[in-house]
Amino acid sequence: HHGSGALAALHADGPHAGLPVTRSDARVLIFNDWEERKRSEPWLRLDMSDKAIFRRYPHLR
């Protein structure tokens, strides 16, 4: 199991509170979210491209 239990660094406060600090933090969040959702949506594709990251977390651009 590759990303399970990996912890992402999140901004503690300010405008980005609760959001990932780096792209690799964002990838951890996206992976964990996908892993949760694919139980009920097995067709869901995992997209951890930069484009997917920016779409979801525009502050990382």
Results as ranks from 00 to 15, higher is better:
1 H>N: 11
1 H>W: 12
1 H>V: 10
1 H>L: 10
1 H>A: 11
1 H>Y: 11
1 H>C: 14
1 H>E: 12
2 H>P: 15
2 H>D: 08
2 H>N: 09
3 G>E: 10
3 G>Q: 15
3 G>F: 13
4 S>W: 09
4 S>I: 14
4 S>L: 12
4 S>H: 12
4 S>K: 15
5 G>V: 13
5 G>M: 10
5 G>R: 14
5 G>A: 13
5 G>L: 12
6 A>V: 10
6 A>G: 11
6 A>H: 12
6 A>K: 14
6 A>P: 11
6 A>M: 14
7 L>D: 10
7 L>K: 13
7 L>Y: 08
7 L>E: 10
8 A>N: 04
8 A>H: 10
8 A>I: 09
8 A>P: 12
9 A>T: 12
9 A>Y: 09
9 A>Q: 13
9 A>I: 12
9 A>E: 10
10 L>E: 04
10 L>N: 15
10 L>P: 10
10 L>Q: 13
10 L>Y: 12
11 H>N: 06
11 H>V: 05
11 H>Q: 03
11 H>P: 03
12 A>N: 08
12 A>C: 13
12 A>P: 10
12 A>L: 12
12 A>V: 12
12 A>G: 07
12 A>T: 12
12 A>F: 08
12 A>M: 11
13 D>R: 06
13 D>C: 11
13 D>E: 09
13 D>F: 08
14 G>H: 03
14 G>I: 05
14 G>L: 03
14 G>S: 03
14 G>Q: 03
14 G>Y: 03
14 G>R: 03
15 P>K: 06
15 P>S: 05
15 P>I: 07
15 P>N: 15
15 P>W: 05
15 P>M: 06
16 H>K: 05
16 H>L: 14
16 H>T: 05
16 H>E: 05
16 H>G: 03
16 H>Q: 09
16 H>A: 04
16 H>V: 04
17 A>W: 06
17 A>C: 09
17 A>L: 08
17 A>N: 06
17 A>V: 10
17 A>Y: 08
17 A>M: 10
17 A>S: 07
17 A>R: 11
17 A>Q: 10
17 A>T: 08
18 G>H: 05
18 G>R: 04
18 G>A: 04
18 G>E: 03
18 G>C: 05
18 G>Q: 06
18 G>N: 06
18 G>T: 03
18 G>L: 06
18 G>V: 03
18 G>M: 09
19 L>E: 05
19 L>P: 02
19 L>W: 04
19 L>H: 03
19 L>K: 05
20 P>I: 15
20 P>K: 01
21 V>P: 02
21 V>C: 14
21 V>W: 03
22 T>V: 11
22 T>I: 14
22 T>F: 02
22 T>G: 06
22 T>W: 14
22 T>N: 07
23 R>S: 07
23 R>H: 07
24 S>E: 13
24 S>G: 15
24 S>Y: 12
24 S>T: 09
24 S>A: 14
24 S>W: 11
24 S>L: 09
25 D>I: 03
25 D>E: 08
25 D>A: 06
25 D>Y: 06
25 D>H: 04
25 D>S: 11
25 D>L: 02
25 D>R: 02
26 A>T: 00
26 A>N: 00
26 A>Y: 01
26 A>D: 00
26 A>I: 01
26 A>H: 01
26 A>R: 15
26 A>E: 00
26 A>L: 01
27 R>L: 07
27 R>I: 06
27 R>V: 06
27 R>P: 00
27 R>S: 04
27 R>E: 08
28 V>C: 12
28 V>F: 06
28 V>M: 10
29 L>H: 03
29 L>D: 01
29 L>N: 07
29 L>K: 03
29 L>R: 03
30 I>Y: 02
30 I>A: 01
30 I>K: 01
30 I>R: 15
30 I>N: 00
30 I>Q: 01
30 I>E: 01
31 F>T: 07
31 F>Y: 12
31 F>C: 08
31 F>K: 10
31 F>V: 04
31 F>R: 09
31 F>P: 00
31 F>Q: 05
32 N>K: 12
32 N>W: 13
32 N>F: 10
32 N>L: 14
32 N>A: 12
32 N>S: 08
33 D>P: 01
33 D>H: 05
33 D>C: 06
33 D>G: 04
33 D>M: 06
34 W>I: 01
34 W>Q: 00
34 W>H: 04
34 W>V: 01
34 W>P: 00
34 W>E: 01
34 W>D: 14
34 W>C: 01
34 W>T: 15
34 W>A: 01
35 E>W: 14
35 E>T: 13
35 E>V: 15
35 E>M: 15
36 E>M: 12
36 E>Y: 13
36 E>N: 10
36 E>I: 13
36 E>C: 11
36 E>T: 10
37 R>F: 03
37 R>C: 05
37 R>H: 06
37 R>I: 13
38 K>F: 07
38 K>I: 13
38 K>R: 13
38 K>L: 07
38 K>Y: 15
38 K>G: 04
38 K>A: 14
38 K>H: 12
38 K>P: 15
38 K>W: 07
40 S>F: 10
40 S>W: 08
40 S>A: 10
40 S>T: 13
40 S>V: 10
40 S>P: 02
40 S>Y: 14
40 S>K: 13
41 E>C: 14
41 E>F: 08
41 E>M: 06
41 E>L: 05
41 E>K: 07
41 E>V: 05
41 E>N: 08
41 E>Q: 07
42 P>R: 09
42 P>V: 04
42 P>M: 08
42 P>N: 04
42 P>D: 04
43 W>F: 10
43 W>M: 09
43 W>H: 12
43 W>K: 10
44 L>R: 05
44 L>T: 06
44 L>E: 07
44 L>N: 04
44 L>W: 05
44 L>S: 09
45 R>A: 14
45 R>M: 09
45 R>C: 14
45 R>W: 07
45 R>K: 15
45 R>L: 14
45 R>D: 08
46 L>C: 06
46 L>F: 03
46 L>I: 04
46 L>N: 01
46 L>M: 06
47 D>A: 02
47 D>F: 03
47 D>W: 02
47 D>M: 03
48 M>I: 13
48 M>E: 02
48 M>W: 15
48 M>T: 10
48 M>L: 14
48 M>G: 02
49 S>I: 03
49 S>Y: 01
49 S>W: 02
49 S>N: 02
49 S>P: 00
49 S>D: 03
49 S>L: 02
50 D>T: 08
50 D>N: 09
50 D>S: 06
51 K>C: 15
51 K>L: 09
51 K>P: 14
51 K>F: 12
52 A>M: 06
52 A>G: 14
52 A>N: 07
53 I>W: 01
53 I>Y: 01
53 I>V: 11
53 I>F: 01
53 I>P: 00
53 I>D: 01
53 I>T: 01
54 F>I: 11
54 F>A: 07
54 F>D: 15
54 F>H: 09
54 F>P: 01
54 F>K: 05
55 R>I: 12
55 R>S: 12
55 R>C: 09
55 R>K: 13
55 R>A: 14
55 R>V: 12
55 R>M: 13
55 R>E: 15
55 R>F: 15
55 R>T: 15
55 R>Y: 09
56 R>K: 13
56 R>T: 15
56 R>L: 11
56 R>A: 15
56 R>S: 07
56 R>V: 08
57 Y>G: 01
57 Y>Q: 11
57 Y>W: 14
57 Y>V: 00
57 Y>C: 01
58 P>S: 02
58 P>K: 02
59 H>N: 02
59 H>P: 00
59 H>A: 01
59 H>I: 00
60 L>Y: 01
60 L>C: 00
60 L>V: 00
61 R>E: 07
61 R>Y: 09
61 R>M: 11
61 R>W: 08
61 R>I: 10
61 R>D: 07
